[in-house]
């Protein structure tokens, strides 16, 4: 443990208003929710001397409300809390599957959906599901609040489009129509407590003739930010998933991602595994969570 508690300044917010006020006054402060990422860096001695704004006590941001059209998940809802809500598991199974693969039970009990998003890791486990559910992220500052499409949140590795005085308040999950096919797959360094090498989430709707009504497919750990396969999604729209269409879609995958070699995996492996998963999904061989 190389963190030095005495060097730290801890600000503790008691309410949402309090949190936003403290945020406005201390734009350099690091927001702290579950601490599952921040404290790892602190333990390594990388955050000594910093000011931390603890928002974990803000009850309003912990709520999970499930309605007919969608669910509103407070930014501070933990992965474990989402897994405990049968209505969320039933409505957004790809998301809860991802929540169940974040770290181990201890990390799931502490890590929050909002913290996960704010942290903006390229390997964020919940991001591919949030991308295909087309979640909307509500961010607030003392001046008011605004809503961002999930696709607008990330600007790079560990970077978001949030302004320095903003905090994530909640995540809205629109309720999807029942898909014909859905998939979540995490390919990690081992069976549990793994960092992902590649990750996929997919939703597919077919029209009455059996052609593709809509395809949404997202990959994680394949680019600085989570990526929707926009080109492939567009290319298959309205077409039957025959050999030719599938080949085309799989070929287009690479143009929407930019995987790299690092200590966890290789560019080629990531690409090939993602292509295989995508092909398996389109061919109907790989589905489920």
């Amino acid at each position: 443990m190389r963190g030095d508690a005495a060097s730290m300044t801890l600000l503790r917010a008691k309410s949402a208003a309090d949190a936003l006020r403290l945020r406005a006054r201390n734009p350099a402060a690091l927001p702290l929710a579950g601490g599952t990422d921040l404290m790892v860096h602190w333990n390594a001695g990388l955050l000594n001397g910093r000011t931390v704004l603890d928002i974990s006590a803000v009850k309003d941001w912990r709520r999970i409300k499930v309605g007919k059209d969608g669910a509103e998940v407070g930014a501070l809802a933990t992965h474990a809390a989402l897994l405990r809500q049968p209505a969320v598991v039933a409505g957004w199974p790809l998301l809860t599957a991802a929540c169940g693969l974040v770290g181990g039970p201890q990390i799931q009990a502490r890590g929050t959906l909002g913290g996960n998003i704010a942290n903006a890791s390229p390997a964020g486990d919940t991001f591919p599901p949030l991308a295909v559910y087309e979640a909307r992220v509500r961010v607030a500052s003392s001046a008011g609040s605004r809503e961002l499409a999930f696709s607008e949140v990330f600007t790079g590795v560990k970077k978001t489009s949030l302004k320095p005085d903003e905090l994530i308040e909640s995540i809205y999950l629109p309720r999807p129509a029942k898909p014909a096919r859905q998939l979540f797959r995490k390919v990690g360094t081992r069976a549990a407590q793994a960092i992902s090498k590649t990750m996929a989430a997919g939703l597919l709707w077919l029209d009455k003739k059996g052609a593709v009504g809509e395809l949404r497919f997202a990959l994680g750990s394949m680019a600085p930010t989570v990526r929707r396969l926009r080109k492939a999604e567009q290319a298959v729209r309205g077409r039957k998933l025959d050999r030719e269409t599938i080949d085309l879609a799989v070929k287009l995958l690479a143009s929407d991602v930019s995987p790299i070699d690092d200590i966890r995996s290789t560019r080629l492996y990531r690409l090939r595994a993602a292509e295989n998963i995508f092909r398996g999904f389109l061919e109907g061989r790989l589905e489920g969570v």
Binding site: V40, G104, T189, R190, A191, A192, A194, I195, I263, R264
Partner: peptide, 16 residues
Amino acid sequence: LQNPRLTDYVIPTALD
């Protein structure tokens, strides 16, 4: 060693 952490040097868990 470039991965001197238990996060990156992975040993088996009960599920492995």
